[in-house]
Amino acid sequence: MDGEPLVRWYWIGDRLGYLLDLTRTHAVIALVPVLIALLVAVPLGLVCARLPRLYQPVSVVLNVAYALPSLALFVLLIPYTGLATRATVMIPLTFYALAVLLPTTVDGLRSVPESVRQAATAMGYGPWHRLAAVELPAALPYLISGLRVAAVSSISLAAVGALVGLGGLGELFLNGFQLTFTTPILAGIVLVAALALVTDLLLVLARRLLAPWAVREKGAAQ
């Protein structure tokens, strides 16, 4: 309508608790799959780094899954996981995150020069000690970089869950579209972007704390 404001600030002010609840729900729906994918990616990446013939078919399967539209996967899962359940949305998001995290894990593990592995072995490091002290720390910057991509992508994709009856910030987009009301749509956009930004900044901080040598190397290269 003519004269309709783009944002009705009183609507936002009256629903701060509601918006906070949606943001919390969205964070759980989006980030728990990333955590699950991380727990799978590390051991699977270790196996794939040791067995290159296994890595290729696993990578192909995950890339195909990543290429599938998220809404189509949500709909396909509804008969098995139910409508408006977290599993319907979180299972595809886990596969999407795994498709990002597995290659970065494998690349990180492969980044350790063979001479470094041999030197660790010569110092008396067993396979598990070498993995914990040498290989995983070397893979950490790669893994966190993958986590940044996976987390931001998952936060964005989780908004589609509203179309299958699940809450989260996507509910604002759906309601705004149905009511032809721009305020909840814009509020949803800002909150999704803010959640993605905060998550990314926390992961950058984690990289600085857990892998400070990688930050120094990057600065020296520049």
Rank of each mutant, 00 (worst) to 15 (best):
Met1Thr: 15
Glu4Tyr: 03
Pro5Phe: 11
Leu16Arg: 05
Leu16Thr: 10
Gly17Phe: 06
Tyr18Ser: 09
Arg24Ser: 11
Ile29Val: 15
Leu35Gln: 08
Leu35Phe: 14
Ile36Val: 15
Val42Ser: 13
Ala49Asn: 08
Leu51Phe: 09
Ser59Val: 11
Val60Phe: 15
Val60Glu: 13
Leu62Tyr: 04
Tyr66Gly: 14
Leu68Lys: 08
Ser70Leu: 09
Ser70Thr: 15
Ala72Tyr: 13
Leu76Tyr: 13
Leu77Gly: 07
Val89Gly: 12
Met90Thr: 06
Thr94Met: 13
Thr94Asn: 05
Phe95Glu: 10
Leu102Lys: 11
Val106Thr: 12
Asp107Thr: 13
Asp107Cys: 02
Gly108Thr: 02
Leu109Glu: 00
Glu114Tyr: 04
Ser115Gly: 13
Val116His: 09
Met123His: 14
Pro127Ala: 13
Val149Ala: 06
Ala150Glu: 05
Ala151Glu: 04
Val152Glu: 03
Ala159Gln: 04
Val160Ala: 06
Val164His: 04
Gly165Ile: 01
Gly168Tyr: 06
Glu171Phe: 02
Asn175Thr: 09
Phe177Gly: 03
Thr183Phe: 01
Pro184Val: 03
Leu186Asp: 01
Leu186Ile: 12
Leu186Arg: 00
Ala187Glu: 04
Ala187Arg: 03
Ala194Leu: 10
Leu203Gly: 00
Leu203Arg: 00
Leu205Phe: 08
Arg208Tyr: 02
Arg216Thr: 11
Glu217Gln: 10
Gly219Leu: 13
Gln222Asp: 10
